[in-house]
Design a protein around this nucleic acid. Structure first.
Lengths: 172, 172
DNA sequence: GTAGTGTTACTCGGATAAATATTGTCCGAGTGACATCGG
DNA sequence: CCGATGTCACTCGGACAATATTTATCCGAGTAACACTAC
């Protein structure tokens, strides 16, 4: 029941990337610096998010990462599943039919009641996560968070984001 | 997001112990044999349950394990927390204030919104687990499960349970 | 026959190794920007 | 002065160790039953 450490980093990075303009990108090294993480290791998690089609990566100079779709269409569940894996936490090993009590295969067609209860609880967990959109996190941060911290984060993003050539907002 | 393998074993053992008579006990070795598990390793989890005051252990010959209280007063959450630890799966490392964006300690008095969302989801998870009592599992198994399997389990329990001398149901 | 006593076998409990998953790091492939060279 | 081209620096991506956690095992402490002996 321990959640990997990369989940927190992934959510923070995604929330940060939600503040970049249009289709501009932000290098993974900048994100790592923003949160004091290992640049090389953070790329591993960003890569998982890219594989899950939550982020898009642009190679080459002035490249970096960018949200693959609007922040309103990304939930915390998407990020958690991308980093921690899609399979449920509780996997029934069917140990009930591994001892000498085993009778016959026809006796175990019904799923294990314990497994059903655990999966039901996990469904509640995932539903709660799916109710929170990435845009909610950003909006809550902008509204409830400390204004100085929010301004500093925006300044950091402004300083490190790299506009793409296909963008029409080329300036300076 | 991976749940330890011992959780399944712990719940199954607790459900099995719910079927023993009165204050009789059942050795850990018998429980391990019942599910085809390592006897030495299962004791580790049973020991965790004992430390959490879910089970009681009786040493010496004719000793073993026994539920510390009625099955109606034991929830799946109790067992999961005893085996996996009481602390939440998501622990906010406050990485938002570890980079160069850090402003001042006064800017971080509000808890992180991400942490709040994750903890809320986990609360839903725990609530769902707390709604399932161990007696529900046993009752569901007796009612919905295959009669042959249930009878075999009861026979196994009858064969391995050891009545205590303080018990009034001494027979044979 | 009965009570006391020593031995014994059985139990759980914690300390100790192996296996696995996670965390962290490094180097290589790919790509677009930049400087240079030619027209 | 403008365009094409070659070099280069910067990016991500996957392969390679180190560490932590989980899994599995073994041996020791404790206890009650059992057998034996004495009365």
């Amino acid at each position: 029941m321990k959640l990997g450490d990369g989940v927190e980093a992934a959510i923070h990075c995604a929330a940060t990337l939600a503040s970049v303009d249009g289709n501009s990108t932000m290098p993974g090294a900048a994100l790592a610096e923003c949160f004091g993480l290992s640049p090389s290791y953070l790329l591993k998690h960003l890569n998982q998010l890219t594989a899950a089609h939550i982020l898009e990566s642009v190679p080459g100079p002035a490249g970096g990462y960018r949200l693959a779709r609007a922040a309103e269409r990304i939930t915390l569940l998407d990020i958690v599943l991308a980093v921690e894996g899609r399979e449920p936490a509780f996997r029934c090993g069917e140990i009930r039919q591994r001892g000498p009590v085993k009778i016959d295969a026809s006796a175990y067609v019904k799923p294990c009641g314990i497994n059903a209860a655990m999966l039901k609880a996990e469904r509640a967990y995932r539903t709660a996560l799916a109710d929170v959109k990435l845009s909610d996190i950003v909006a809550e941060y902008a509204a409830e968070g400390d204004p100085r911290s929010y301004a500093a984060s925006c300044a950091f993003v402004e300083r490190h984001q790299r506009p793409q050539k296909s963008a029409s907002s080329k300036q300076t």
